[in-house]
Design a protein around this nucleic acid. Structure first.
Lengths: 246, 246
DNA sequence: GGCGACGGGTTGGGGTCCCAACTTTACGGG
DNA sequence: CCCGTAAAGTTGGGACCCCAACCCGTCGCC
């Protein structure tokens, strides 16, 4: 039931939607606490909490004495919270077993891209992609559960992961194997905005390649979605690791 | 004046200190809202906010109906909020100029490790390190300001960055140049805990190498500190990119 | 001795009111 | 016309209060 969600979520979601779809453009003022309480008929607490959440997400910024405003270029946001599969549940059963020390386990399999995934990988729906699922265990405790998707063509260079060796080839390794020329800039983006967003990157000369998307569950935490983006340019080439989740 | 900070910060800081120094070990129950209001003579709001902050930081976890508890192995935390230099201010002047498209600028120079930096890089104070400063500009707007430090010995393979080529060699590239054998797992950690923490990694057979530390300013946001850690093991080798900041 | 029901404690969600510090705007006097 | 001041509005911080859902230990009953 999404109907009896906490009310502050209703506020968050509506404002978020308006920011994402441009109804509230960058710089636009967000309704004040007082206005929100009226418009959504909620208490001050809920209104404040909603604003705090959006601020924490980096979508808006509060200026004391003045108001909250939509941040510049929060365009990366729309990618967020989209779910490209929900089939991870059975895999989560793997999280029961316990080994020792730290281990990576993985399993790759070919699947076909759904609509959402295809859009994000800039493929067509139905195109072959490789789904790989990982369990990372540290000291017997499963710490991370990741599912990554990438265009099947990129996987060419590695074929089936050889057991015993390392199953998780770096994107860079795989990319060069696949003939994608990159140099070696790799940067992880740890905050969401303001930062070079997807739209910034799209404006660059030669475009953007989204290499793979990945959803990671850290034990006990909400999933984090990541997307590696390659920007080939004249002055530089860049592999971007972008967290998409909140 | 730290004296007239918000009161909830007092609560946060005291509890945080106790968690960090082990007075409150993993699993230990945190005083409840009611107890905190009494002990710190603050209102419920402040107590709740303090708990929320600590929970958001990943230090504690709340279980409804039961209480808040110190999370397992939150030992990564002490690294946080340490400042290894405060000399970035002049460099920030670079942020004025504006080019076009996206560009990386950087400048490397040899310096000597201070106490804090040495500890984090597992060097001795005074050991030579390379400091590199980057400005990343997208569409003329400076988006990122980063300062990274790494042991000078790692820089051997690259000497002075050749102008015109790419100044920012990947750690992996540099490490293999320096004879550090790694395979190819690279994972960015986007949440702080629970996750394989430094102490988890320390328990691994061959130990941990902290390769470099880096502080990054995204335009308008608080700095994020990152540390790349290599864990050579029998079953895998892992380069960990760990955000240290809150 | 075993088991189930009850009650006290705790969290997350929510409401209302208050205040200091700050911004913005409007207005009136020079 | 300009400037200074006052008023209105806004944010962050805070104090209390209430409630549902939930956890857990205790106690009493079988």
């Amino acid at each position: 039931m999404t109907g009896n969600d906490p009310v502050y979520l209703r506020v968050v979601e509506e404002l978020r939607a308006q920011i994402v779809d441009g109804t509230l453009p960058p710089g636009a003022p967000i309704p004040s606490r007082a206005q929100l309480t009226q418009r959504f008929r909620v208490g001050e607490t809920a209104a404040r909490h909603a604003l705090r959440v959006l601020a924490a997400e980096g979508l808006i910024i509060g200026r004391v004495g003045s108001g909250h405003y939509v941040r510049e270029k929060s365009v990366l946001y729309p990618l967020q919270r989209s779910r490209h599969t929900d089939h991870d549940a059975p895999f989560a059963a793997d999280m029961q077993a316990g080994g020792h020390r730290a281990t990576w386990d993985w399993r790759s399999e070919p699947v076909r891209a759904g609509r959402d995934l295809a859009r994000r990988l800039r493929l067509d729906p139905g195109d072959p992609v490789i789904r790989t699922r990982y369990v990372f265990r540290a000291e017997g405790r499963p710490m991370q559960l990741a599912t990554s998707y990438e265009p099947a063509e990129l996987g060419k260079g590695q074929a089936a992961p050889e057991e015993g060796t390392n199953g998780r080839k770096s994107l860079l390794a795989r990319m060069s194997a696949a003939g994608v020329k990159i140099t070696d800039i790799r940067e992880s983006v740890h905050t969401r905005v303001p930062q070079p967003t997807e739209s910034d990157l799209l404006d660059l000369p030669t475009g953007v390649h989204v290499l793979h998307v990945e959803r990671t569950h850290w034990a006990g935490d909400r999933p984090v979605e990541t997307s590696d983006i390659v920007v080939p340019g004249d002055r530089f080439r860049l592999v971007y690791s972008v967290p998409l989740g909140a």
